[in-house]
Design a binder for these strands. Sequence first.
DNA 1: ATTAATGCAAAGACTTTGCACCGGT
DNA 2: ACCGGTGCAAAGTCTTTGCATTAAT
Lengths: 152, 152
Amino acid sequence: MRSPAPTRSVSLLERLRRCGLRLTAQRRVVAETLEGVHVHLTAEQVYERATARLPEISRATVYNTLNQFHQLGVVREITLDDGPKRYDPNAGQRHQHLICERCGTVRDVIPRGAIALPQRERHGFSVSTVEVVFRGLCPACAAGSRETSDHD
Amino acid sequence: MRSPAPTRSVSLLERLRRCGLRLTAQRRVVAETLEGVHVHLTAEQVYERATARLPEISRATVYNTLNQFHQLGVVREITLDDGPKRYDPNAGQRHQHLICERCGTVRDVIPRGAIALPQRERHGFSVSTVEVVFRGLCPACAAGSRETSDHD
DNA sequence: ATTAATGCAAAGACTTTGCACCGGT
DNA sequence: ACCGGTGCAAAGTCTTTGCATTAAT
């Protein structure tokens, strides 16, 4: 095959620069941590992984950074029924979530058709967005055994 | 008109008794508080309203009670992106939610058709439930003025 | 009488914040 | 050099918990 296309859509880091944020080691590490996985991590998990690459990083910075990313719209926040929030680097791209009820893993799924609420069922609300969450068991958990999360 | 039908589906309280829970004033008040509104309250709001009827009630009891109700499946928990959980007395009945992005009000809407994820987009997950949240502005907020919640 | 339920306050989980120092630009 | 960013620890928000007391059955 030919050389891998550099079309790899702008990296998180590049997008950060464009937003006027300084390119610090911490932000780089947080961004890389998020981009490297296709499941959605909690702030604590990001902190753990970031610490492996950059031991001095602090929790506060991880939280701050994740919030900044979120505000910039480059990362999405996912709130589960309990436990901490998770962060999804795949923002911008409209998508829905698949959550494993056993291990908590969160994955993206690409949307099919638009889901709309009929006028008469809107109770007068003006609807702007729709979120859909599918819950079930991930392959690993459905397989029977494991209880762990983080099937990277 | 004739006398109102007593068909009023079993009350929360009655359901509690059937679950073997003791019928205390606290539980009665919490149940009544939840049943009286058609928007979904936070634990704190339930506590406030309950206190009006039963001054001695404690926050702990409100939280405990809401959790019990949830575990019994008579009340549903709703987690927003931020802020505290909300409690929906309309469990059992399958429905979706309409959330006002300005004031945070949460209302129910009755489902239309089932929403399914095509086999090929399931990433191996076995999907058991689907949750849909519509976000927008409630009539009051859309109207322009107010910023308050709790349009009972 | 039994034993679950309550109230209180302390603890816990998760997240944000104030401030002095550090390091991109 | 400037000023945003970082790290630390303290504080904040929401929720749970331990234990002595109270009350439903």
